[in-house]
Amino acid sequence: MNWGTKIVIVFVLFAGLIVTLVTISMKQDVSLVAKDYYVQEIAYQDQIERIKNYKKLGAEQLRITYDDSRSVVVITAPGNHKREGEVHFFRPSDASLDSKYALKPNGDGHQYFDVKNFKKGLWKIKISWQENGREYYEEKTLVI
């Protein structure tokens, strides 16, 4: 085998490798974390203010707990139980699994979310609400 044949074989193998890599990369999901990611990024200073407002609450902060034995997420709102807002169960790896619920604690200040049907793995619980003319935001990472 002469050197010209070896060059052609190396070139064909290289071209095959490139075609394989392009095919694999075209099949990958390249969706953004959120559909309105850029709009959210522009308004992030407002989000920083919501987080600061939440930290100033002190003893009035929401508590988020996960009861593994019952597969239930419990949000406890001490003090004013009439907080209303939104609870967003966010799956970083797959936006199609995200779900949003209204934040409406019961008379005892608890709200229960059944997560038995949620896919196992990493979730972020994002809670935002407005109270007394101020906006608040809390986020907790949870592994189900």
Results as ranks from 00 to 15, higher is better:
D68G: 02
T23E: 14
L32M: 12
I51S: 05
L32V: 07
Q40D: 05
R83D: 03
Q47F: 09
H81M: 05
I42V: 15
S71N: 09
I75Q: 12
R63W: 13
R63C: 15
Q28K: 13
E49P: 01
E49K: 10
V22H: 06
I24P: 06
I48Q: 02
Q28I: 11
P78D: 02
D36P: 10
T23S: 15
Q61I: 08
M26Y: 10
T76M: 09
N80F: 13
L57P: 03
V39M: 11
I51K: 05
R50V: 06
R83A: 04
Y38Q: 05
D67G: 09
N53A: 02
Y37V: 09
R70C: 01
L32H: 11
S69K: 13
Q47W: 07
Q28E: 11
A43T: 08
V22S: 04
R63A: 15
V33L: 14
Q45I: 04
K52M: 08
V72C: 09
D29V: 03
I64P: 00
K82H: 09
Y66G: 00
E84Y: 15
I51P: 03
G79P: 03
E41A: 14
Y44I: 05
Q45S: 13
S31M: 03
R50C: 11
R83P: 02
V74S: 01
I48G: 00
H81S: 07
A59V: 08
D29R: 04
A77C: 14
K56N: 04
Y37N: 06
T65N: 11
S31D: 04
D29N: 08
L57Q: 02
V73D: 05
R70S: 13
Q47Y: 11
Q40R: 08
T76Y: 15
Q45T: 08
E41W: 12
A43D: 10
